[in-house]
Amino acid sequence: MESGQPLIEFKGVTKTYQKGTHALNDVNIKIYKGEFVFVVGKSGAGKSTFIKLIMREETPNAGEIFVNGYELSHMRRKDIPYLRRTMGIVFQDFRVIPTMNVFDNVAFTLRVVGASQREIRRKVSHALSMVGLGNKARSYPMELSGGEQQRVGLARALVNNPTLIIADEPTGNVDPNMSYEIVELLTEINRRGTTVVMVTHEHQLVRDFNRRVVMLENGRVVADNSEGAM
């Protein structure tokens, strides 16, 4: 899997918040194109900070971060949206807009980048059929189950053909069966060439899918098992 330049690289990254919380401490990670990586750890281990740094919501106090060819530590603020367009985000709480139907929720990402109506129709239909919601395009989030809402979130994340998908505990708010479906979908997306970084605390899920696992504890990488065995 390790070939060429890494898609994500953390070089000696340290992040301390203003209140004095040491979120990450000298973290070195390389994630290559096409990898599926689980990031695990207890609450407060630094998982969220790890994702926030990748999204350039936060900047490190020390070290360098490279994502999709962007050097994030010295990135200009106006370039941040363009970095984010190269990745898709899946949230734990789905973040679907209740006043928009499924189609519009997914189309949202494309409207932001100024896609044409034709392109929107084509790409949204494709993304919805990929997550198995082709027949629910006109439904509103209220009419969907938690698992279906998360699949809308997943369709929204992949509709713009990102090179990287960041999933922040995507199974945290769905039942166990649906959790497996969600991760299977992510695995399918990964199989098609998209790099997936998934933060989770569900160890059973991690064991069953047998992928690379990065374990964080007190802001440090304490294990990085590319075989998935913990």
């Binding site: 999204m55 106006k78 949206p81 363009y82 970095l83 984010r84 367009r85 898709g88 985000i89 949230f91 973040r95 807009i97 949202f108 990402t109 932001v112 980048v113 929204r156 713009n160």
Partner: peptide, 10 residues
Amino acid sequence: SIMKAVGATN
């Protein structure tokens, strides 16, 4: 928040 996450400019 979603707009920002998916890369909307200010």
